[in-house]
Design a protein around this nucleic acid. Structure first.
Lengths: 107, 107
DNA sequence: TTTTTAGTTAAGCAAATACTTAACTATTAT
DNA sequence: ATAATAGTTAAGTATTTGCTTAACTAAAAA
């Protein structure tokens, strides 16, 4: 069973704070590279490299328009992270309590 | 406002698949190092090093008993990851739908 | 056509990572 | 006391990462 980079390395992709910040930005909607880069102190190539890491794990997609490239969030691979983390969720109870109460009353 | 390593680097700590596997193991309860190391192909020092990374971000705690050291899961720092990922959760709707329905009926 | 703009790709580098083996510390057993 | 066990720490190494500047490609504007 082969594991593709896109499916295995999502955890590595979100390990970098800059890449998480980029994803956070993209929640506002798709944006061209220059606009994505603006809030960061690093060079444009650095951002471009981060974007290709995100692209490889399919956390973002690209759309060309003229000489601009719009990057758009694709959060679906984060489900992997969510699923993994949820195994530990019994340890911060609040949310589960609400859901638990609901399920108890609606079997 | 200083950011401690333990609060900032949880994402980096769980980026490594071996460390995630260790955490998964520890869900069964606390275990001594040798037992933790058993399923892995790498050396004991390698596992020991992974355990200290997990220790630094407080994802595990230590308890000494005789010459053994029992490591125990402390999943609380994962809340950080959970919180971050939840911002993207609107994209895989099922769970939120259940909770949403509940909140709608119980305002 | 020339120049500007938007962005990527290439090359290089310093620092961090994930290991290894060897040496060490502490505790228990003989 | 000596040896075995459980584990960490040290030192070294190959690889990966996150950046940089410089060179490139493609599209739009002059």
């Amino acid at each position: 069973m082969s594991r593709t980079a896109s499916s295995t390395d999502v955890f590595a992709a979100i390990a970098d704070p800059t890449r998480r910040a980029i994803l956070d930005l993209l929640r506002q909607g798709e944006q061209p590279v220059k606009q994505i880069a603006q809030p960061f102190k690093m060079s444009l190539p650095a951002i471009s490299q981060h974007l290709s890491v995100l692209c490889e794990v399919e956390l973002v997609t690209q759309r060309k328009k003229g000489r601009q490239r719009f990057y758009r969030l694709n959060p679906e691979p984060l489900k992997q992270v969510s699923d993994w983390v949820n195994h530990y969720e019994q340890f911060w109870q609040e949310k589960l309590d609400i859901l638990g109460d609901y399920l108890e009353d609606n079997p």
